[in-house]
Each structure stands twice: as structure tokens, then as C-alpha cells.
């Protein structure tokens, strides 16, 4: 790896150098391409195989494993998965499950950004008693993920009368400090002069937040939005425990439901599970791709 490490190679318009250097540089470029091609194969290969396999018959997947070639059943499988009504009500389609996952992802990401931005703002920009206590209380939530406190959480949600509701589904997931931690780091990197200037102009906390801090945080918000959207989208265990209403089922749960066949009696519809897996990846992947630039920029800013 050391041989390839040349991130400081100056831009193409570098001063003219001796020939050996040029050759070495070309060799380095080739090596970089090899590394990247290997990486792309490593990351995308399994996805291609998953997609290809989803176009085969479930029996073939069951007995011969993943497939590299195209199986010819793309349209049928994806149509079934997207449009065929399942569940007792017959209304659970892949489309509905996708929509529910979108709701969960959006609700979670937006809720989390709003709440944690406000909290981080208070912690970084205000001097008040208990500030560090508040920070540590919030930070403590990183210690125990929902999976290991899931039963008591269920009881709490029930006592609050929030079973089978989107707020009951989303709020307990929001109770984790990751985003607050990100925003705190980011706010601390913003130069003090900004606040000084704002105060000379007579801006109060509200004006400062709305006019200066929020616009400055745009890319950061985008980065956190992507991260959180994906986290919300990928939830499985909590929604499965919380919701009994079929109309709230999400796509990750749908994948599990297909594979959850009493073993032996039937062959699971592997093709449909894989097709759902591909569909489940599409929207978050799209979010990542669309916000790609902001994502990286946002992260660059956090780290300073």
C-alpha cells in the first residue's frame, strides 16, 4: 500500500519534471487504477450478483446458489414484488412497504436533525449551569442501543399510548446522541468572530441561529440527513415489535417475512427476497448519489 500512497501528487499542471519522475508517476497512476478497480469489484460485485440472482427461479437459487448470468425473470419477479398485494388485508405491496420505509427514514432523519441541532446549539453557544451535565446525559445514549433495551422501551411507548403510531415508532429511535455529537463538533469549528460580529449587529440567539448558523450548516445537515435516513430506513427489530398494523410494514421487514419460512415445507421465494433487497437499496442509494457532493463537503467541515 505504501507504494501507492501518493495523495499529494500535485495537479496535472505540475512543473516540468525529469523523465524518470514522469514514468514513476504514470506507474503510480496505473496502480491507483488497479486498487480502485479491485475496490469497485469488491463493493459492487456482490450487488450485481444479487441483482442477477433475483431474476432466476427460486428453486435454482435454492439448489445452485447465487447466479452470475441473467435469469430472464426480471419483469415477473419485480412486478410481483412491487404490485402484488400480500398480507391478510391483501393490501401490502412492495410499493406500500417502500413508502413506509421512506416515511420512517424521513421522519427519523428530519426529527433527529432538528432536535439535535437545537441541543447542540444550546450546548455550544450558551453559558449556563448544567451545560456539561446535559451534554453527558445526551451522550450517554450512545452506550446502549435500542436492541438491548428494546423490551423496557416497548413498555414505555405503550404507557404513553403510542403503539402503532409513527411517533411511537420514530421517537425512541431518535433518542440517541450521534447527530448531536456531529453538530456539536461542527459548531465548535465555526470561528468565534461570527458570533462576535452578530452580537455587535445586535442579533439575538434566534436571529443568529436562523440567519447565520443554519445557512452555514447546510452541507452538514445534508451529510447527517443521509446518514440518518439510511439508519432509519434500515430499522428492523423495533418496527417489527412495535407495529401490528399491516399498513405500517416496512421493506426490510418484508425481506425477513419472505425468508421466514418454516424450513423444509417450502422453498422460500429467494428471488423475491433478493428483488426486495435490491429495491430496498435503491432509494437510500439514490439519496447518497444525489447528495454526494454535499455529503463529502459536509463531512470535510465536521472534521475541522
Amino acid at each position: 500500500m505504501t507504494a501507492l500512497a501518493d495523495p499529494l501528487a500535485p495537479a496535472p499542471a505540475a512543473p516540468a519534471a525529469a523523465r524518470p519522475v514522469n514514468r514513476a508517476r504514470r506507474r503510480a497512476q496505473i496502480l491507483h487504477h488497479i486498487v480502485l478497480i479491485f475496490g469497485v469489484l469488491l463493493m459492487c460485485g456482490p450487488m450485481v450478483v444479487t441483482f442477477m440472482s433475483s431474476t432466476w427461479d427460486p428453486v435454482v437459487i435454492h439448489s445452485e446458489g447465487l447466479q452470475l448470468g441473467y435469469g430472464g425473470k426480471f419483469l415477473e419477479t419485480y412486478e410481483t414484488v412491487l404490485l402484488k398485494g400480500g398480507g391478510f388485508t391483501g393490501e401490502i405491496t412492495g410499493t406500500l412497504m417502500l413508502w413506509n420505509s421512506v416515511l420512517l427514514g424521513l421522519g427519523f432523519a428530519i426529527g433527529k436533525i432538528v432536535i439535535s441541532m437545537l441541543a447542540a446549539y444550546a450546548i455550544v453557544y450558551f453559558r449556563f449551569p448544567f451545560a456539561s451535565l446535559a451534554f453527558w446525559v445526551i451522550f450517554a445514549t450512545l452506550l446502549l442501543p435500542l436492541e438491548v433495551r428494546i423490551l423496557p422501551s416497548y413498555e414505555v411507548v405503550q404507557r404513553l399510548g403510542m403503539l402503532n403510531s409513527w411517533s411511537g415508532l420514530i421517537l425512541p429511535l431518535i433518542a440517541s446522541a450521534t447527530a448531536t455529537f456531529f453538530f456539536r463538533q461542527f459548531f465548535r469549528s465555526i470561528p468565534d468572530e461570527l458570533l462576535e460580529a452578530a452580537r455587535i449587529d445586535g442579533a439575538g440567539p434566534f436571529r443568529f441561529f436562523v440567519d447565520i448558523l443554519a445557512p452555514l450548516s447546510k452541507t452538514m445537515m445534508a451529510a447527517i440527513f443521509i446518514i440518518m435516513f439510511v439508519v432509519g430506513w434500515n430499522q428492523y427489530l423495533w418496527p417489527a415489535l412495535m407495529t401490528t398494523d399491516e399498513s405500517m410494514f416496512t421493506i426490510v421487514r418484508g425481506i425477513r417475512q419472505i425468508l421466514q419460512v418454516w424450513i423444509g415445507a417450502n422453498i422460500p421465494d429467494y428471488n423475491q427476497a433478493l428483488a426486495l433487497a435490491i429495491l430496498a437499496m435503491a432509494p437510500p442509494a439514490l439519496v447518497v448519489l444525489v447528495f454526494q457532493r454535499m455529503f463529502i463537503k459536509g463531512l470535510v467541515e465536521t472534521e475541522k
Binding site: T141, I174, A175
Partner: peptide
């Protein structure tokens, strides 16, 4: 600051500290 922190603290208290 208390007002700003309230939403997060309430959620943390209800859905983290309590469980």
C-alpha cells in the same frame, strides 16, 4: 438554552433513561 435542549432531553429521558 433550556428551551433549546428541552426536546432532546425529554426524548432522552423518556426513551433512554427510563428504559
Amino acid at each position: 438554552p433550556y428551551l433549546l435542549l428541552a426536546p432532546q432531553l425529554i426524548i432522552v429521558a423518556l426513551f433512554f433513561l427510563w428504559p
